[in-house]
Design a binder for these strands. Structure first.
Lengths: 112, 112
DNA sequence: TGAATGCTGAAGCATATGCTTCACTATCAA
DNA sequence: TTGATAGTGAAGCATATGCTTCAGCATTCA
C-alpha cells in the first residue's frame, strides 16, 4: 500500500470522513477559525487540527495564520476536480446507455 | 472511530483508492467480470475481490453471478450522490463569492 | 506582568485497511 | 471424469488512521 499519492486519492479520502465533510460544508459558507470548526465537533482540538491537515494536504482547504488565529477557506478547484472525475464517468456511462438504446432500436425496431 | 456508516462516507472512501477508481472507470464503459477487472491490476485475485466488496458496499457497483462468472456493473445513482454533494457545496461557495462581489461593488462602486 | 486564549506537536494506543498465501468450491469443456 | 477456469473465504501481517493526553508556545487582554 502506497499512501494516497494522487490528488484525487487525497481529495476523496479527505471527503470520506463525516467530520471533515462537515468542515468543508461549513467553509463553503465562509471562512472560519480552527476553534470555530472544532466547536460543534465532539472531539479534541488536536483531533480537529489533524483533520484539518488532511484537508489541507488534499488541497480542499487552505489556511493562513494571523496572530494566534488560523483562518481556513475552501479551495473550490479541488472540489471541482473531484466533481469533474465523477461527472465524466457518469456521462460516459449515460452515453453508453444511449448507444445501447439506439442499437436495440435499430435491430429491433420498425424503421428501415 | 465508527467505520464508514453514511452512504457518502462509503462512496468517497471507495473512490479514494486508485485501483478501485480504475475499476469504476472501466465499468462505465460496460460490464466486466472479476477476472477482467483484475487482469491489469497488479495484485492477487483475492485483493481484487476485496476491493470489489468495498465498491459494492458503497453502492457504486453491483454484481450478479451466472455460472462461475460474476459480472459487475456501475450504479450511477451512487456516482450521482457523491457528485451532487460536491456540486451543492461548490455552488454554495460560488453564490457566496457573488454576494461578496455585489457587496463590494455597492460599498465601493461609482453607481448610486 | 500574568493569565487566558488559540493553536501546535509528540507519544501512544485501538482499530481499520490492504495486501498476501493457501485451501477450497463450483462450473465448464474435452 | 478429469482438468482448467473463476471466484470465495479465512488467517495473518504491515502499515495507516483516528483518536487521546499532555506538554508546550505565541498572542492578546486585563
Amino acid at each position: 500500500m502506497l499512501q494516497h499519492s494522487d490528488p484525487l486519492d487525497r481529495a476523496f479520502h479527505a471527503l470520506a470522513d463525516p467530520g471533515r465533510r462537515w468542515m468543508v460544508d461549513r467553509l463553503t459558507r465562509g471562512p472560519a477559525s480552527v476553534s470555530e470548526l472544532a466547536q460543534p465537533l465532539d472531539m479534541s482540538m488536536s483531533a480537529v487540527v489533524q483533520h484539518l491537515k488532511v484537508l489541507e494536504a488534499s488541497g480542499l482547504v487552505r489556511s493562513t495564520k494571523t496572530g494566534r488565529i488560523r483562518t481556513c477557506q475552501v479551495q473550490p478547484d479541488a472540489l471541482r476536480a473531484a466533481e469533474g472525475w465523477l461527472n465524466t464517468r457518469r456521462l460516459e456511462w449515460e452515453r453508453r446507455l444511449d448507444r445501447l438504446g439506439d442499437y436495440l432500436a435499430t435491430t429491433n425496431g420498425d424503421e428501415q
